Computed example of a mutant assay.
Amino acid sequence: MARKLAELQARHHRGLLPEPTRLTVADWAKQWLEMKAKEVRPSTLNSYRYELTRLLPSLKNPSAHDPLGRMRLQAVQPLHVRRFLTELQGRATSRTVRLARTLLFSLFEDALRLEMIVRNPVAPVRLKLPPKRPPGRTLQPEEARALLAALDEGGTPIALALRLMLTCGLRRGEAMGLQWGDVDLERGVLHVRRAWIKVNGKGQLSEPKTPGSYRTVPIPPTTLERLRAYRATLEGLSEAEARGMWLFPGRDPSTPAHPDAPDHYLRRVLARLGLPAIRVHDLRHSYGSLLLANGAPVEVVADRMGHASPTITLGIYRHLLEEERMGWVLDLG
């Protein structure tokens, strides 16, 4: 304790301690959201705002009961955070509690970087929670083949968008944001340059999710054949005229189809095939899983999927890789 006091006194004399302020956690959260508006995609910002409002109700309703939000930012201690998360644990899912801790950590960590507080009170707080479930469900090879055949029978642009998600590992927004200028039908590759995401119920153009999401992806021969046939339906249009056109236009051809269109179509196809329901994002997840199961190096899968690093790929597919490793046995008799 004496050592900590001496350290604080030394920092005070060097002018490294923040000036006392009555800024509350909720006040700082509002400022933090304004900062993040310039750094993240609109959909991510909306997610931050939604989750923070659930954690700090006074952000939306100034008269709401909000013990943590009304505390002075500089007064929050690890014990306060621990009590808050423990109380949340009693009425929310493990996923919500994990997300709450992550969001609060970021909130206080940025305050620490700006020297508004002397330490992050969330950093030392640890909670015992059930292990995370593997993300989504992976289609088995035979299920993937049946789904692709059904999508080909559908013959609609949205069916082709779903095919791209499954055979090229594209995110929904990346597939829906493709223009013909992004697709090289001669070389058999496509370039991810933008995303068409849902913000407040409507479609909106955005940058790809991360810097690594800007990438060039090879198109499998069968999918390339479908794309060439689809391009042939644009009769009378030169390459220059088609370059700025959306692959999957909406009723108004100046914008792509609604971001939810693939979800609705996928549900109908799966019901017709009698396959269990999956999310559109599980098509991308299946792509990564099937690539790894077929022996693709983790680095290649990370590059194809636009992950920031192979470490992220390892984290997502660790369960699959562990199963694969179990098959490598040296039996010398």
Rank of each mutant, 00 (worst) to 15 (best):
L23T: 13
L320R: 11
L85D: 04
E19D: 13
I158S: 00
L292I: 06
W28D: 04
A242I: 06
R279I: 03
A150I: 11
G203Q: 15
G181Y: 05
D152L: 08
R279E: 11
P253D: 07
L164M: 15
L205E: 14
P57Q: 04
P131G: 02
V280A: 11
L170C: 04
F105C: 07
F105I: 02
R54E: 12
A111P: 01
L314M: 15
P259C: 07
T138D: 10
P62S: 11
R171T: 00
A75P: 01
R22L: 14
E87K: 09
R72H: 12
N120G: 02
P221E: 13
D252M: 10
S47D: 14
R95Q: 10
T210G: 10
V118Q: 12
G155S: 09
V40W: 07
P310G: 01
L45T: 03
P18L: 09
A2Y: 08
Q9P: 07
L23N: 05
T86M: 13
D331M: 02
P218W: 11
V118D: 09
P131I: 05
K202V: 13
T24L: 00
P134R: 12
E34C: 03
L127A: 02
A144T: 07
V97C: 06
L273E: 02
Q204F: 05
P134K: 06
E109G: 02
A159V: 05
E322L: 15
